[in-house]
């Protein structure tokens, strides 16, 4: 609701500002090279959390924590991963990992089982297959070392 209104407002702003944009004239006499340029990107919007109602009791509550899992890649095995991995943690954790080599995902699933994940033995293969297919490097070259992390540029 809120978000839709926000996006509509942003879109209106975009249309409103484009005609007035100085973007097409790079050398204005006043030095202004570009102004009033927007790109629609709703992923940057944040909805505020509702403040929890105040009271003077001995109970200190912050209300519910917001849950907004980043969806997994679509594919065979996705539902198994969602079912079993989500018992203990959101699938958001999977997508934020670097693209690890396939053998890594087998080790990671084994580690989770060691930690207590109740994954039936017959499901392990399908879960590992899914993770390897969607969260390992696209081309499985013999583990090319990742470039040393350096600050951008």
């Amino acid at each position: 609701m809120n978000r839709h209104r926000f996006m509509a407002a942003a879109a209106a702003l975009l249309l409103w500002t484009l005609p007035g944009s100085a973007g097409s004239t790079p050398t204005n006499p006043d030095g202004l090279s570009e102004a009033g340029v927007y790109a629609l990107d709703s992923s940057g919007l944040l909805l505020p959390t509702s403040p929890y109602p105040g009271n003077t009791s001995s109970t200190y509550s912050v209300g519910a924590y917001p849950l907004a899992p980043t969806p997994l890649a679509r594919g065979t095995g996705q539902e198994l991963v969602e079912s079993y991995c989500s018992i203990c943690h959101s699938v958001t954790l999977i997508g934020v990992q670097p693209r690890f080599p396939p053998e890594f995902w087998k080790k990671e699933v084994d580690k989770m089982i060691h930690l207590g994940a109740p994954i039936p033995t017959e499901m392990v293969g399908q879960i590992v297959d899914y993770l390897q297919k969607h969260y390992s490097p696209v081309k499985t070259q013999p583990s090319a070392p990742e470039p040393k992390p350096k600050p951008s540029p």
Binding site: L46, H89, T92, L93
Partner: peptide, 21 residues
């Protein structure tokens, strides 16, 4: 990290690594 931000109770928008935990 280049990740989305999230807002949770008592916090300003912070860089979100995981929503649960």
């Amino acid at each position: 990290a280049a990740l989305p931000m999230a807002q949770v109770p008592q916090k300003l928008p912070l860089i979100r690594f995981s929503d649960r935990p």
